[in-house]
């Protein structure tokens, strides 16, 4: 397993949905079990090229998320590998029971893509802004729950999902994102990626907050604080080994997520630590609030999902060490 971190974390130029669709097409060319389902959001998901390439293996169900998940379960029961897409809230909230029973409980191989994580729902506003999806999905036994953060990780995670039997929930940001990885990186289910080693504190981040965590680590380094940064792209199964090593070796943890801290990454890390190695923790994330409408940069400030907030919480946790 190797992780190669990009030297420059500038905003990428490629939309993540473009990488998503290209990866699906590449996989479908190699494996005729790959099928794509959507609930009238193929335009948003950028998967129309998939439909053009594989019309018979594309099922646009119309605005019926529950049925889409059930149809995917039926396809899976006959050996296909369905990738379904809708916005995160409609996957995790509206189709929760279908994901639970027809997919996870029935031991199916359905890959549920929920797009527009947290504040990236932006101008669609609070109704469409999932701060709870990862938590809801994580509470279902045997689910794998993941959030890639850049072009390379989207490619690797989607491929890994295809190769790994089981029902997955995959949070997908559709637009360009800061570059975190080089293409040589391997992703392994249940293994966090070490982006920067450090000895004073560990920042455990996910999705949108990974790039913010890297920025925060630079700021902290300038102040003489050596922070470790982990990308916990696989929230479930959680890499408890990496969490406990961080606790033992750095003695303080800050979690960072574009999600409610309740039942999110913060809760998962804190639960692991409480049971195995009580350690001071601070959590950057949504403090149990609903979302609201606005551009991403406004919402990032509004919900304190920023590198500055990670720096502030890091200083707070260091004082508790």
């Amino acid at each position: 397993m190797s992780v190669k971190v990009a030297e420059n974390h500038a905003m990428g130029t490629k939309e993540l949905r473009k990488e998503f669709c290209e990866t699906l097409i590449a996989m479908a060319e190699e494996d005729n079990r790959v099928v794509v389902l959507d609930a009238d959001l193929m335009n948003a998901a950028g998967t129309k090229p998939f439909r053009a390439a594989f019309p018979e293996r594309t099922f646009d169900c119309g605005v019926q998320e529950a049925n889409m998940i059930g149809v995917a379960a039926g396809l899976s029961s006959r050996g296909f590998i369905p990738f379904t897409h809708t916005f995160g809230p409609f996957a995790a909230r509206r189709a929760c029971d279908q994901i639970f029973m027809s997919c996870a409980y029935a031991k199916q191989n359905v890959k549920v893509i929920g797009s527009d994580p947290g504040i990236t729902a932006a101008l669609n506003g609070g109704t469409h802004m999932p701060f709870e999806d990862m938590g809801i999905m994580s509470t279902i036994p045997e689910m794998t729950v993941v959030e890639p953060c850049d072009v390379v990780s989207v490619n690797k995670v989607i491929r890994l999902a295809k190769e790994t039997f089981g029902t997955w929930y995959i949070r997908l940001h559709r637009k360009p994102a800061p570059t975190v990885y080089e293409a040589e990186t391997d992703f392994v289910v249940g293994k966090a990626n070490l982006l920067k080693d450090g000895t004073d504190v560990t920042i455990i981040a996910m999705g949108y907050m990974v790039a913010e965590a890297l920025k925060a680590a630079e700021t902290l380094a300038a102040e003489g604080i050596n922070a470790r940064v982990l990308d916990m792209w696989c929230m479930k199964p959680l890499d408890e080994e990496a969490v406990l090593a961080a606790a033992k070796e750095t003695g303080a943890i800050v979690t960072a997520e574009n999600h409610n801290i309740k039942n999110g990454l913060g809760s998962a890390v804190a639960s692991c630590l409480a049971l195995n190695c009580p350690t001071p923790v601070e959590m950057v994330g949504v403090q149990d609030e609903f979302g609201e409408v606005g551009p991403v940069n406004y919402l990032a400030e509004r919900f304190k999902l920023t590198a500055d907030e990670i720096v502030a919480k890091t200083k707070k946790v260091l004082a508790r060490k």
Partner: peptide, 15 residues
């Protein structure tokens, strides 16, 4: 969980 078999049956038919 009632109703779900209707959708999975359609998935089986598609498959």
């Amino acid at each position: 969980s009632l109703g779900q078999g209707a959708s999975s049956a359609m998935g089986i038919a598609c498959a």
